[in-house]
Design a protein around this nucleic acid. Structure first.
Lengths: 253, 253
DNA sequence: CCCCCTAATTTATCATTATAATTTTTTCAC
DNA sequence: GTGAAAAAATTATAATGATAAATTAGGGGG
């Protein structure tokens, strides 16, 4: 999996890519952290014995991956910048742009993961976090009167899940759930509106979120898991009317 | 989530990034697919009214994201190239390089997802695929005699899971499971060896894999789910002796 | 002490030239 | 004709130099 394990694989990589790898190695060797400075352009030109253009292309490669940030001016230059969750989501979305995901696929994952997240968060949240979730869940107390309004409620619901995912101690679990919330939001924003609001299901969804907040506050892990599992069933019902396939666009940062 | 929804966010993006976005837009507008050609360098220079260096930096950005592939020579130039699973895994691994994942985190995910994958694959595999899995599971019929040999067996076991993930119809589920198998493999390759092989657990793991293959062949979804759930318990036992934190290195492509 | 202005530093962009890598075409032997 | 080697054409790759833009640092003037 690592480059060092494939000596005879690709003997022809462009010089900018090689330089980018050397810079990465340079950073790892020194165990540089988030804000630490890299050598400036002219220093890298000498360090790697390549031209300015090559160095700049290498820097753009690392920048595109979110590994560095570059500024102009004195004290400027490139610094190590940890990859943001947003950047990681965008890069991963590029992959699924070509993979033809369906709503059913995403809900198969959500059914498996969201209850797990709910259970693991029970009793671990601060009062502020609980309050924020409660506020999100209490928005839109009235049933949606139009398809447009239903769309807003749907997005608000996804914000609730996205926020929840940010609280996860398990960063992998949190990332995957947040990624799915992003995909569904993106899809909701750009979808056609053609179905009337389903009042019964929406009110059920709202009740679930409020009950979930209570269970999280009370530290009842299994109760939270159960509620979230029910909630996923409702959410899936609401999404089933969508087209099967999605992600026909790139995400921005 | 999309760039168009953030007007006051970043009014100053570098020209290479702007050009890269324009090229992406150019591709999406024309609904270009995997092998389709982009304009060549000099054409882009005129198209976007920027210099050669700027165009090249933009191309390196897109190349780093896996969105294009560039070749020299007549008929060469840049073409649309769908993001490979490997590339997506590497880019995502860069994110988790900064996130301090633990073995427990990964197994919380595996416990939730691997049984789901096993169940959904039951009865859907071809004879060739079943045969390949069986062959992978039947390797190392003898218990490991050394720590080094145990390492090999561990990696072979992860290859089994990685291969299984590639058969998934749900590309998101498959990707996440494959990603975790990659992380664990990477960790296993570079870990210290200090514990004697646990013969009992290893033989149990092997039996699980063989039984799983049978259940998959027979189309017994719930049996496959049950077996995989047990298997995850065993695998977690074997990994528990590892250090808690991992991913202290970048992955290559 | 504070504000503004200038100067210094560093990246950003452009322009030009030469080189390397590939593919296509041509040529020439058989 | 056929096939292989040589030549040509096309394209990206790389290097160099010059100028612009942005940002910080420092130096008065009040």
């Amino acid at each position: 999996m690592d480059g060092s394990t494939t000596p005879p694989a690709k003997p022809k990589r462009s010089r900018p890519v090689q330089v980018a790898d050397q810079i990465k190695q340079w950073v790892v060797e020194r165990d540089l952290k988030k804000g630490d400075k890299l050598p400036n352009e002219s220093a890298m030109i000498e360090l790697f014995s390549v031209s300015k253009g090559t160095v700049r292309e290498a820097l753009r490669i690392l920048e595109a991956q979110g590994l560095i940030v570059t500024k102009t001016g004195p004290g400027g230059g490139s610094i190590v910048g940890e990859v943001s969750a947003n950047r990681a989501r965008s890069l991963l979305a590029n992959y699924f742009y070509f993979q033809d995901l369906s709503v059913a696929d995403i809900y198969q994952m959500r059914r498996a993961l969201e209850p797990e997240l709910a259970a693991s968060l029970a009793g671990t949240l601060t009062e502020d976090q609980i309050a924020e979730l409660q506020e999100l869940a209490e928005r839109y107390p009235e049933p949606a009167k139009s398809a447009e309004e239903e769309k807003e409620q749907h997005i608000a619901s996804l914000v609730f899940h996205a926020r929840l995912s940010e609280f996860a101690e398990n960063k992998l679990l949190g990332f995957v759930i947040g990624f799915m919330a992003n995909i569904l939001t993106d899809m909701t924003v750009y979808r056609q509106l053609y179905d009337p609001p389903n009042v019964v299901l929406w009110s059920k969804g709202r009740e679930h979120q409020l009950a979930l907040v209570e269970a999280l506050r009370a530290g009842q892990a299994e109760e939270a898991r159960r509620i979230m599992a029910s909630h996923m069933q409702v959410a899936e019902e609401l999404m089933k009317v969508q087209e099967a396939h999605l992600l026909r666009r790139f995400m921005g940062d």
